[in-house]
Write a protein that binds this DNA or RNA. Structure first.
Length: 632
RNA sequence: GACCUCGUAGCUCAGCUGGAUAGAGCAACUGCCUUCUAAGCAGUAGGUCACAGGUUCGAAUCCUGUCGGGGUCGCCA
């Protein structure tokens, strides 16, 4: 039982003793720093049964606690707020018991439970960009959080390796590639493939631009009756449209129509059909180019420090789910329309009717997601399944989870969408067309170079080997990047300012690492100046300074923060905590001497406190996927 | 148009399961290195918590509406 629970029980007993009953669960808060006390109990809700003033009620409970609760040393009352002061021995005892606990921060929240975290899920036609970086960092960190909370974790990556967009890169390479390979060009495989995706888009734009203009003027003569009818319908609407927004949309529709009729797109569509038919040349090309992409991705993943236990490929999973559609039809969850398409009616749940299988019997996106959900639970027997996917897919996941529930899947309750917000740049949204996309590899490289420049400027690294230095720059650069992204609530849209992200002062990863490195420096001198490990023995001082108590209180909170972060799937909770702990320790560092303290008990107590803090900072940073450094 | 989501200091963000005088960092200004790493610490200044109602002893937090940003409403993924 932790302190808070013990105190809650004492308060509850005090209330019962005074008023005969306790109408509601006791809620405690940490005392506002401006007031004296550790915990605060608000008595307003009790006034009905105490039939007294707030002050008198709070005082009565305070007196009762002081007499009967052994952990309470004192109290004070401000209006209806009962501020409770705990005995400092409690903090000394806690420090003594936990300072060297190597598993401090590991909790039992998820004992005997298993969770899958699916994240990353890239397309194999382009290299990773800043948006993927947020996804990857979140996924990895959330997986770490679950592990720390005692869950078994399966990290999964569902790779989108098929589809029309993949064929675009393939076709462009075939037509314009001249046999280029990563080896022949020295390019990273994912970048090479991405280059041909851009080549394709440019060629398509160039070739269709005059036709689109023609089409807007109503002078286009498309082939095929269906297209002709569609075209005429759009033109008719366009002539009547008056709002700018509507006109723009119609023009976009037109553009899409013209593009899809272009020879280039037809070839691409044919290639997709050939792929589905298993034509060997197409499959070979697909395998080759995807292979390039995977080796490129692996380098990016390795540098970011993310990894996976289970890969799924859409080229496998896109066939799944059709038998579940049959099952749903039998159960009456789905229904079939006259054209053969299968639907679910979710209007009763505030959503729409949603297609789950096309009229021609082929899958849509959600079909395979239904099948893949079953597969995940069958293969791994997980209790929970987390999808780390951007918030533009909120609706999709609402529908998916509802479908699984209606199909009677017991695991449906354990499915969660970690819906994270988009990353904006100071210039606005990232747009590939405008070349404002921030490439993941470039970004990491810039951060590491900035770390190197900053480190050299400060010049504190004399005596470090070359490999140690490289490791240091890597660690610092990635720390700045990861912390910058993870400290923001995942659910919120965030602004990525490159200038601010490479700032190493204030609320940053390097700041927390710095605090850790500082402590290591102290611990090194404690162990090397002839005193060896003797500071680890002996008792701890019970006469603690306020700042020492505050540091211990902050440490005490840590396991709760881990649980909170896990429950909320929010690494930001840990990032904010790390800042809090580092700042509190730095204040302690400034106010109290450690190595220069002459009283050995006080000195050794402070060394233990420093050691404990370092452990906790390291644990917290590791949860964010950040490595600590001993010197910087 | 319908639905979802966000709006807190000049900027980036905490705080949001209702509690005291709304907190950090950056930017600005002022102090602190012959003493454990100044990538640090202390201080000054900066707020109509978008706006208007409501619920409550008490609202940045919950409810309704308005305004503003973003997203979604494909037999795309």
């Amino acid at each position: 039982m932790n302190l808070e629970q013990a105190l809650i029980q004492h308060i509850s007993e005090a209330i019962t003793a005074l008023y005969g009953s306790n109408p509601q669960p006791v809620k405690l808060e940490r005392t506002n720093p401006d007031f004296d006390g550790d915990y605060t109990f608000v008595v307003f809700p009790l006034l009905r049964i105490s039939r007294s003033t707030p002050e008198a009620t709070a005082t009565a409970i305070g007196e009762q606690l002081k007499q009967h609760a052994p952990i309470v040393s004192d109290f004070n009352v401000v209006k209806g707020f009962l501020n409770i002061v705990l005995k400092t021995d409690i903090y000394a005892d806690f420090l003594k018991a936990q300072w060297d606990n190597a598993s401090f921060g590991q909790t039992t929240l998820g004992e005997d439970k298993k969770v899958m975290v699916e994240y990353s899920s890239p397309n194999t036609n382009k290299p990773l960009h800043l948006g993927h970086v947020r996804n990857n960092l979140l996924g990895m960190s959330v997986a770490n959080l679950y592990k720390a909370a005692g869950y078994q974790v399966v990290m999964a990556n569902l790779i989108n390796d098929r589809g029309i967009h993949i064929c675009k890169s393939m076709l462009a390479w075939q037509k314009f590639g001249n046999g280029e390979t990563p080896e022949s060009t020295g390019m990273k495989g994912d970048h090479l493939v991405g280059k041909y995706y851009v080549v394709f888009e440019n060629a398509l734009r160039e070739k269709t631009l005059p036709i689109i203009e023609e089409a807007i003027d109503g002078k286009w003569t498309p082939e095929g009756d269906i297209v002709k009818t569609k075209y005429q319908a759009i033109i008719a609407q366009l002539q009547q449209a008056s709002e700018d927004k509507q006109i723009a949309k119609l023009k976009d529709d037109l553009k899409e129509l013209v593009r899809n009729q272009s020879p280039l797109m037809r070839e691409t569509q044919q290639m997709l059909r050939d792929w589905e038919a298993g034509i060997p040349e197409v499959i070979d090309l697909w395998k080759t180019m995807n292979g390039w992409v995977y080796s490129g991705f692996e380098k990016t993943y390795a540098r970011l420090g993310v990894s996976f236990d289970q890969y799924y490929y859409e080229s496998d999973t896109y066939k799944l789910g059709k038998d579940v559609v049959d099952e749903g039809l039998q159960k009456g969850v789905f229904y079939r329309k006259d054209d053969g398409s299968v639907w679910i009616d979710l209007r009763g749940d505030g959503l729409d009717e949603k297609l789950v299988l096309r009229g021609d019997g082929t899958s849509v996106y959600i079909t395979q997601d239904i099948g893949t959900a079953d597969l995940k639970f069958q293969q791994h027997g997980v209790d929970q399944s987390i999808y780390v996917v951007g918030n533009e897919q909120d609706y999709h996941f609402k529908v998916l989870f509802l479908i699984m529930k209606k199909l009677g899947r017991p695991f449906a309750e354990g499915m969660h969408h970690l819906s994270y917000g988009m990353v904006d740049l100071p210039s606005g949204k990232m747009k590939s067309r405008e070349g404002t996309v921030v490439d993941a590899d470039d970004l990491v490289q810039e951060m590491v170079e900035e770390a190197k420049a900053k480190t050299q400027e400060l010049g504190k690294t004399d005596g470090l080997e070359e490999t140690e230095l490289l490791n240091l720059y890597e660690s610092l650069g990635l720390s700045a990047l990861k912390f910058f992204i993870l400290k923001v609530d995942p659910r919120k849209r965030m602004l990525f300012n490159p200038q601010e992200s490479i700032d190493f002062q204030g609320d940053t990863g390097p700041f927390v690492q710095y605090t850790y490195a500082r402590i290591q420096s102290i611990l090194r001198s404690a162990s090397s100046d002839g005193q060896d490990q003797s500071w680890k023995q002996g008792d701890v001082n019970t006469e603690l300074q306020p700042i020492e108590i505050e540091t211990i209180q902050t440490l005490y909170r840590y396991p709760e923060e881990v649980n909170k972060a896990c429950n909320d799937s929010s690494p930001a909770v840990i990032a904010q905590y790390c800042i809090d702990l580092a700042r509190t320790f730095n204040r302690f560092y400034n106010e109290c001497h450690i190595m220069r303290e002459s009283d050995p008990v006080i000195k050794n107590t402070r060394l233990k406190l420093a050691h404990f803090t370092a452990h906790t900072l390291k644990h917290g940073l590791n949860l964010l996927g950040i490595q600590v450094v001993g010197r910087m």
